[in-house]
């Protein structure tokens, strides 16, 4: 299965020290890639070493730091093959009426502007035929009360992905979004409000585990196996956005 291998490829993963990003970075190393793990936590270097990658300390909400991280990575590794714009924050729950301006700004900085800066500054340091993967969310297509600006940012980055796919297609660079459903991770631990609420809605009857259920999609999109797939927003949600599950219907008393 040489097509799925990432041997010889260089990948940068933002938000790579925890959650889905850490799982993806780990998988990419196992698949043979050299991986730059971007993050801000103090333990970043130790985490990157544990994964087998190289830690890159950067605040991805700062345009100049984003530009510098890609330039620096290309100087160190050579032209980049894969960029995963994955850094994200959970801005918590609040209705639109109760949302604080600083929470809105923080969400837009991390979940939206970081992706914009990555798409603006990353491609100049990529090899033609490279792949960019953006972590969106199923809330890009299916809304839930109390996470308005998070969902809006996640939908907005899908729009960015499509435009970038059109603009970068001539270079053979592909740009796609991954839409995880509820995925057990540091951002969404077992006791997160969403976990129990969503369980009944999942046709496969279980939440995703980042290291087992999500990483395959990222590797597919990073690999040459997906080289005609671009501009897509691909859900990895156990069937949740296909329709209403048995669990949900039975929960409301439907005879199915």
């Amino acid at each position: 299965m040489i097509d799925f291998a990432l041997a010889g490829k260089t990948a940068i993963v933002t938000g790579g020290t925890a959650g889905i990003g850490r799982a993806v970075a780990t998988q990419f190393v196992e698949a043979g890639a050299r991986v730059g793990v971007v993050g801000r936590r103090e333990a970043g270097t130790a985490i990157a070493i544990e994964i087998g990658g190289t830690f890159i300390n950067a605040d991805v909400t700062d345009q100049s730091q984003v530009a510098a991280l890609f330039a620096g990575a290309a100087t160190k590794f050579g032209p980049l093959d894969v960029i995963v714009l994955n850094a994200g924050i959970d801005p918590g729950q609040a209705t639109i009426a109760d949302t604080q301006p600083e929470d809105l700004e923080r969400n837009l900085d991390v979940n939206f502007r970081h992706v914009f800066w990555g798409l603006k500054h990353g491609p100049a340091h990529m090899r033609d035929s490279g792949s960019i993967i953006v972590t969106s969310s199923t809330v890009a297509v299916t809304k839930v009360p109390t996470i308005a600006h998070y969902a809006a940012a996640k939908e907005a980055v899908v729009s960015l992905v499509k435009t970038a796919a059109l603009e970068l297609g001539e270079r053979g660079i592909r740009v796609n979004a991954v839409l995880p459903g509820t995925t057990l991770s540091e951002m969404t631990p077992e006791d997160h409000w969403e976990v129990e609420v969503m369980r009944t809605m999942l046709p496969l009857g279980r939440h995703a585990v980042a290291g087992e259920d999500l990483v395959g999609l990222y590797q597919f999109l990073a690999s040459d196996a997906s080289r005609y797939v671009t501009g897509q927003a691909i859900a990895c949600d156990g069937g949740m956005t296909a329709g209403l599950s048995y669990g949900l219907l039975r929960g409301v008393g439907a005879q199915v």
Binding site: A165, L166, L217, Y228, G231, Q232, G239
Partner: peptide, 19 residues
């Protein structure tokens, strides 16, 4: 590798449909 992918309609179109 696709263990959590279900119910999708996945385009493989080189970006034909996106604009």
């Amino acid at each position: 590798g696709a263990s959590y992918i279900s119910g999708n309609a996945l385009l493989i179109d080189g970006g034909l449909m996106e604009g």
